[in-house]
Amino acid sequence: MYYNKQIQLARRLLDQRYATAITIEQLSHEVALSPYYLIRLFHRIYKQTPHQYLIRVRITKAKDLLINSNLSITEICADVGFESLGSFSTLFRKIVGISPSAYRHSSQTIRQSVYIPLCTCLLHGISDTLEP
């Protein structure tokens, strides 16, 4: 696709700046596409909008901090870029299935290494490399 590099750049920028209040206007300006076109192309490639992707990045970072840090949930909320504890908790529960505090409580023995059984990798056509 002609705009592949710009869409990949947009994703990289979201990966790097997830903790900031980045807007679609700023993002589209940096990759030199209109907001409408950026959203459309991003969705075509990644099956989600830039905003949905950003939320998932933030939630993934939050999960990591809940498991691997002693930061409070309020601190984690701010560290990953959410402005409101309410929206953080609501989105976390919607995407993960349980609240941030329940996730921290239930993940005391979670493995630090990325491991998916080989049978599952083969069935679902996913690689067993360490990259997400």
Partner: peptide, 26 residues
Amino acid sequence: NEALHFYTEKLGFEIRADVTKGDYRW
């Protein structure tokens, strides 16, 4: 998500792995 809630909050189980690769969540 519903299953995770059930197994952790109702049965008291621990999360052992939570990995997302693309569209797939293990």
